[in-house]
């Protein structure tokens, strides 16, 4: 894509992003608002796609190599499309001792993804967490803000099934 396409994207989220960028344009060191702009973009799109980064590059006149540097430096930025739910397996010491690795393996198999990836149905993104402060329930995983403890392989599968059915029911 090139600059000439900037205004042709036809997605209202880009209009909103443009409004935000325009509101910063007169500030001193406009380019230093890149991180704020990328945050806004991630809020709007859920992640930073190449298309979005190209858009920001053209509109802010910052080379993509620099945007890519910022986007890959901060863990907060997602570079791939995120699922509806984020599943984080606690890999802290207590959970690890109690079998977090098996929980993770089960999830990888059940969802068909590696860490950081999103399942084909777009429902789950798999991640790792450090200690979530629920060591008494080890091993635990979080789905969004909900904690599930005392996990076994069967329990993990049934929890995932529940979310999957809910998501499909809603759709």
């Amino acid at each position: 894509m090139s600059c000439n396409d900037c205004n042709k994207v036809g997605d209202p989220r880009y209009d909103e992003l443009k409004l935000y960028i325009d509101s910063l344009r007169d500030k001193p060191h406009f380019e230093s608002y890149l991180i704020a702009v990328l945050h806004r973009a991630q809020e709007l799109f859920g992640y930073l796609s190449e298309e979005t980064m190209n858009y920001v590059s053209c509109d802010m006149n910052i080379p993509t190599a620099q945007i890519w540097g910022v986007a890959t430096f901060y863990h907060f930025f997602n570079l791939t499309k995120q699922g509806k739910h984020t599943v984080s397996v606690c890999m802290g010491t207590a959970c690890y001792v109690k079998g977090a690795a098996d929980v993770l393996e089960t999830l990888k198999k059940e969802l068909g993804v590696e860490i950081g990836e999103t399942s084909d149905d777009g429902i789950f993104t798999l991640g790792e967490a450090r200690c979530v402060g629920a060591c008494g329930l080890a091993p635990v995983m979080m789905i969004d803000d909900e904690i599930y403890g005392d996990l076994t392989a069967d329990k993990v599968i049934s929890i995932i099934k529940k979310y999957r059915e809910e998501a499909k029911g809603a759709a």
């Binding site: 190209n54 053209c58 006149n61 190599a65």
Partner: peptide
């Protein structure tokens, strides 16, 4: 139009 930047 290479893939990547083309600043104005």
């Amino acid at each position: 139009e290479p893939n990547g930047i083309i600043p104005k």
